[in-house]
Every structure is written in structure tokens, then in C-alpha cells.
Amino acid sequence: MAVTCRRLHDEPGPDEGTLVLVDRLWPRGLRKADAGFDEWAKTVAPSTELRRWYGHDPERWTEFRRRYRTELDEPERAGALDHLRALAHRGPLTLLTASHEVGISHAAYLAELLNG
């Protein structure tokens, strides 16, 4: 599997495959007509409570990953994660996020999980 992630607002690269937005909230400043991705998998995103607690604080990254992994075991999120896994088995998959800190975002952690 080849799963990558990038910021939604960045220019797409070559051979990104299926593009999936993995944020719970619709990105500010983006019209749906200009979205440019294949799917919106908002159910795989962290809960509002976890997202607010984390706040992309690098010191909380390890604990965020632990808590988010627990959330991903919930049935609805587990199903969404399985769907992403199925997409990744079909070909390249790029997870998109509006986060400014992609390297410490839930999208990065999802890519890590999906890549095994």
C-alpha cells in the first residue's frame, strides 16, 4: 500500500491516486464546487473533544495518538478506517487535511496506520 498525506490547500503531486479528505469539519475558504478530492471521510476524524484537547501541541502528540487509536476502535470509525484500507489496496491513496501541521496531524497518523 502507498498511503500519503498532504495539506488540502497545497498543489497536488503526480500519482496521488484517490484523494480523501479526512477532516471532520469542512475547510474554511473552500467551495464544494472547488473541492478537488474524491471522498470526504469525516467519520474517521478524531472527536471534537480530542481535537480540541490536542490543539496540534507537539508535546501532546504521543498521548493524542494513543487516545485517537482508542477512538478508531469505535464501530463507526473502525468501518471508516476499513474503507480507507480498502481504497489503499486498490492503489495510491492520499489523505487530505486542512491542518497547517500535517506531520503531527491525525492524517499523518492514519497514513502511518494504513501503511503498517
Rank of each mutant, 00 (worst) to 15 (best):
G29P: 01
E16F: 10
L87I: 01
A88D: 04
P92Y: 02
R90Q: 15
Y109A: 12
L81C: 07
G29T: 10
K32H: 03
S99K: 09
S47R: 00
A98P: 04
D15H: 08
E39T: 02
P75G: 00
E101N: 12
R66H: 14
Y109N: 00
L25F: 13
W40Q: 10
L21W: 07
G13K: 14
E74F: 06
K32P: 09
T18M: 07
G29F: 12
L50Q: 09
R90F: 07
L93Y: 04
A86N: 06
E71G: 08
P14M: 06
A108R: 06
P46I: 09
G29W: 13
G13R: 15
P27A: 09
L8K: 02
D57T: 09
D38P: 00
T70W: 04
R6N: 07
N115R: 14
A88F: 00
E74L: 15
R6P: 09
H100F: 09
S99Q: 12
W53T: 14
R51N: 14
L87R: 04
E16Q: 12
P12N: 12
A111V: 01
L50I: 09
G79V: 01
P14I: 00
R90L: 12
L87V: 03
D10H: 15
V3H: 04
L84V: 02
E39V: 02
E112R: 12
D57N: 10
T43I: 12
W53S: 15
T70G: 06
E39F: 14
A35E: 05
V44W: 07
L8F: 10
H106S: 11
T94Y: 15
K42V: 11
R66M: 11
G55H: 10
E16I: 08
A80E: 05
D34S: 06
I104T: 14
T43G: 00
P92I: 02
E49F: 04
A88C: 11
H9R: 13
H83L: 00
K42H: 12
F64T: 04
R69M: 10
A88G: 13
G103A: 08
L113N: 00
G17W: 03
C5Y: 13
L93Q: 05
G91R: 02
G13Y: 11
T70N: 11
R28K: 15
P58Y: 06
K42N: 05
G36L: 11
G36R: 12
G55S: 14
C5I: 06
I104E: 15
G91M: 02
M1T: 13
E71Y: 04
E39L: 14
E101G: 00
T43F: 03
L87K: 01
R85Q: 05
G103H: 14
R69P: 04
R7V: 04
L25T: 15
E76G: 03
S105P: 01
P58A: 04
G116D: 13
F37K: 11
E16L: 06
P12D: 14
L25D: 10
